[in-house]
Design a binder for these strands. Structure first.
Length: 427
RNA sequence: GGAGGGAUGGCCGAGUGGACGAUGGCGGUGGUCUUGAAAACCAUUGAGGUAUUUUGUAUCUCCGGGGGUUCGAAUCCCUCUCCCUCCGCCA
C-alpha cells in the first residue's frame, strides 16, 4: 500500500508513475482516492467535534445532582449520539471504499528503473559464463530425465494431474542436495537466519504481502478452514514481524527459508506445460530482508550477489536482467531477475526474482522500527529474492551437465551433499 | 470432538457503568547521591489519526477483532479469533 499523503500531495505525478507501470486501471483510481481522502478528513473533523462535546457533557452529567437538569442534558445528548452514529457510519463507508481503491494501486517505480512498456524491453545487464558447446545434440530434461529414472511425469499426472511430476532416486536426492547446499551457503557465507514456517496462512496474511486482493486467482485455498496455501515463502516471511516495532539495532534482519510453493497458474494456462518449468507445486529457497529505508537499495544489490553466488558456484551460464517499469509487478519499486541457461530447452530460465518493496508491504503488514530510542516508529523496507527456485535450477543442472550417453555429471559443489556421487547414471 | 477458564501498556498484573489511556510492580530512560559502580531516592516512559505552517497546542480513537446497549463502556450484551486446563483422538 502506498502512503496516502503522496497521492494527496502529488496526484498528477502519481498518475504519471501509473502510466510508466502500464497500470491504467490503477491510474483511474487516483482521482477517486483524492476525493475520498478529502471526504474522510472532512467527516472526521465534524464527528470529532461532536464526540468532544459528548465526552465533555457526559462527564458533567455524571456529576450533576439536579435530576431535572440531568434529564434535560441526557435528552439533548441522545440527539448528539444519533448524529455521531450516523457520521461514524459514513466515515466507515468512506474508509472502506478508500481502502479498496488503495489495495489495487501498485508500488511506485524507483527513479533508477528504466521506463519501458513490457518484459520485451527488459535489460540484460550482465552475462556470466560461456554458453556450452556440446559435441552431441543436447537433450531436453523431459527426454533424458525419465530415461535416467530420476524424473517421472506420467506418475505425477496420475497422482495430481497436469503440471505435476515425481522426482525419483538420484533426482530426488539432487533436489534435496541443492536445497541443503543453498541453505548452507546463505546461512554460513551470507549471514542469513534460517526459518521454517507454515505453508498455510490466514487470509489477512495474504493482504499483508499484497498477494490479495489482486492475485487471488493464483492462490489455492481451503475454504472450509479459511486457509490459503502460500505461493512463495515471501508471504510468511513478510508477516513474521507483522504488527511489530523493531529496534534499530535489530536491522537488517536477513532470513532464508525453504518452502514448497503453490500456484494455480491460471494466468499462464497452456504455457510452459512441458517439463518441470512451471508446476502447481514447487520448491524454493527464499531470501528475505527487513532494512532501514536508507539501506534498502544497497541490500538489493547485495541480495543479487547472494543469488548470483549460487549460480556461479554451479558453473552454469547465467545473467542478470533488470526489469523495466512495465514489468515491475505490483509490490516492487525495483526488480532484477536472474536467469540460467538451459541448453536442452534452448532458453534462459528465470531462477530468481529479486525485489525491493520499500515500505509497500511494511505499511500493509504494519512492520515498523524505531530509528532512535524514543523516536517515532517508521516503516521498514522489505526485500525478497529467490535463492533459488529449485525446478528451474534442476533443469539447468541436468541439461548443462548431461553427457552423450544420457548420464548427468553432478556439479562439484553438490557432491558432498550427494554422498560423493559424481555421475548420475541409469540404474 | 467434549467440559471449563482466559485475552488489559515493553513485561507482570489491578480494575465489574462516570476524573480510567488506565492503580501497582518489573523493565527502559534521565537525574540526585558516589572516586566509579551497585543500592536507595526523585522524575520520566504506548500507538495511530484529525485540525491548526507547527516541533507547539487542541481534539478523536485504541484495554484481542467486529458489532450492540447507554448521555457515558476496559467494565454490560452478541459474535469471531486466539490462548490455557482437563478428558477423548492422533503423526
Amino acid at each position: 500500500m502506498l502512503d496516502i499523503t503522496i497521492i494527496r500531495e502529488k496526484p498528477e505525478w502519481v498518475k504519471e508513475q501509473m502510466e510508466k507501470l502500464n497500470d491504467m486501471a490503477a491510474k483511474d483510481r487516483i482521482d477517486e482516492i483524492v476525493r475520498l481522502d478529502a471526504e474522510r478528513r472532512a467527516l472526521l473533523t465534524e464527528v470529532e467535534d461532536l464526540k468532544a462535546a459528548r465526552n465533555r457533557v457526559s462527564k458533567e452529567i455524571g456529576r450533576m445532582k439536579d435530576q431535572e437538569a440531568r434529564e434535560a442534558k441526557i435528552v439533548e445528548m441522545q440527539g448528539v449520539a444519533a448524529q455521531i452514529d450516523e457520521l461514524d457510519e459514513q466515515v466507515h463507508q468512506v474508509e472502506a471504499e478508500l481502502d479498496e481503491h488503495m489495495n489495487w494501486v501498485p508500488n511506485l517505480p524507483h527513479t533508477s528503473v528504466p521506463v519501458g512498456p513490457d518484459d520485451s524491453h527488459n535489460i540484460v545487464k550482465e552475462t556470466f559464463g560461456e554458453l556450452p558447446n556440446f559435441d552431441f545434440t543436447p537433450q531436453a530434461h523431459w527426454d533424458f530425465g525419465p530415461a535416467l529414472g530420476i524424473l517421472d511425469f506420467e506418475r505425477g499426472v496420475k497422482l495430481s494431474g497436469t503440471r505435476f511430476y515425481v522426482l525419483r532416486a538420484a533426482g530426488a536426492r539432487l533436489q534435496r542436495a541443492l536445497i541443503n547446499w543453498m541453505l548452507d551457503l546463505h546461512t554460513t557465507q551470507h549471514g542469513y537466519t534460517e526459518i521454517i514456517s507454515p505453508y498455510m496462512v490466514r487470509e489477512a496474511i495474504m493482504y499483508g504481502s499484497s498477494q490479495l486482493p489482486k492475485f487471488g486467482e493464483n492462490l489455492y485455498r481451503d475454504i472450509e478452514e479459511d486457509f490459503y496455501f502460500i505461493p512463495t515463502a515471501e508471504v510468511s516471511l513478510t508477516n513474521l514481524h507483522r504488527d511489530e516495532i523493531l529496534e534499530a539495532g535489530q536491522l537488517p534482519i536477513d532470513y532464508v527459508c525453504y518452502t514448497e510453493c503453490f500456484r494455480r497458474e491460471k494466468m499462464s494456462a497452456g504455457r510452459d506445460v512441458r517439463g518441470m518449468k512451471r508446476g502447481h507445486q514447487f520448491a524454493k529457497v527464499e531470501m528475505y530482508k527487513f532494512t532501514r529505508p536508507e539501506d534498502s537499495y544497497d541490500a538489493l544489490e547485495q541480495m543479487v550477489q547472494h543469488a548470483g553466488d549460487v549460480c556461479r558456484a554451479l558453473g552454469i551460464p547465467w545473467r542478470i536482467v533488470e526489469m523495466v517499469t512495465g514489468d515491475l509487478g505490483f509490490q516492487a519499486t525495483k526488480k532484477y531477475d536472474l536467469e540460467m541457461w538451459a541448453p536442452g530447452c534452448g532458453e534462459w530460465l528465470e531462477v530468481s526474482s529479486l525485489s525491493n518493496c520499500e515500505a509497500f508491504q511494511a505499511r500493509r503488514a504494519n512492520i515498523r522500527y524505531r530509528p532512535e530510542p524514543k523516536a517515532k516508529p517508521q516503516f521498514v523496507h522489505t526485500l525478497n529474492g529467490s535463492g533459488l527456485a529449485l525446478p528451474r535450477v534442476m533443469i539447468a543442472v541436468m541439461e548443462n551437465y548431461q553427457q552423450a550417453d544420457g548420464s548427468v555429471v553432478v556439479p562439484e559443489a553438490l557432491r558432498p551433499y550427494m554422498g560423493g556421487l559424481e555421475v548420475i547414471e541409469a540404474e
